[in-house]
Amino acid sequence: MTPDDAPIRFAILGAARIATKVGKAIQDANGAELSVIASRELSKAETWKQHHGARLAVEGYEEALRQPDIDAVYIPLPPSLHKEWTIKSAEAGKHVLCEKPTAMDAHEAREMLAVCKANGVQFMDGTMWPHTPRSQQMSQVLNDGTLGELRRVVSAFSIQMPDTPDQHRYIPELGGGALYDIGWYCVRASLWAFADVPTHVYASATYHRGVDNNATAILWFSENRVASFDCGYDLTRRKWMEVVGESGNLVCDDFLSPWDIEKQRFWVHDQDGIATEIQSPSVVQETCMVESFVQIIRSKELSEYWPQVSLDNQRVIDALMVSARTGNREEVK
Rank of each mutant, 00 (worst) to 15 (best):
P68R: 03
E62Q: 13
D4M: 14
D71W: 05
E173C: 00
L150S: 04
L174Q: 15
L179K: 01
V121I: 02
G248K: 02
G93P: 13
V316S: 02
E223G: 05
G31T: 07
G177C: 08
V244D: 11
F266S: 01
G177K: 03
P172Y: 04
I296P: 08
Q67T: 09
R9Y: 09
A45W: 09
I159L: 13
D166E: 12
G120T: 05
Y233A: 03
M161N: 14
G232C: 07
C98M: 09
W184L: 11
V309C: 13
I87V: 14
A114H: 08
H200G: 00
Q271W: 10
M138H: 03
G232I: 01
T326V: 09
A57N: 11
Q27R: 11
H51C: 06
E63N: 13
Q137N: 10
R17V: 14
A29R: 02
V322F: 04
V332A: 04
S222V: 14
L191G: 09
E291D: 12
I159W: 10
E99V: 05
L302W: 09
I8A: 08
A11M: 11
E262V: 03
S299L: 10
G273S: 10
T236Q: 12
P198W: 01
L147S: 07
K24F: 08
M112H: 00
A195L: 05
I182Q: 04
F255N: 06
E63Y: 04
N249K: 14
N214G: 06
A203M: 11
N214P: 01
I261L: 10
G148V: 06
A178D: 14
V121D: 02
W220E: 12
F266Y: 15
L65V: 07
T287L: 06
T199Y: 00
E262M: 09
M124H: 02
K239D: 15
A217E: 02
Q136V: 10
G120L: 07
A215Y: 09
T86Y: 01
T132K: 05
Q136W: 09
Y74K: 00
G210P: 10
A106V: 03
G177I: 04
R325Q: 15
H52K: 05
R110M: 00
D125S: 11
V243L: 00
G183Y: 00
A25R: 01
Y207F: 15
Y74E: 13
A15I: 12
N214K: 12
D196N: 15
L235D: 10
I261W: 08
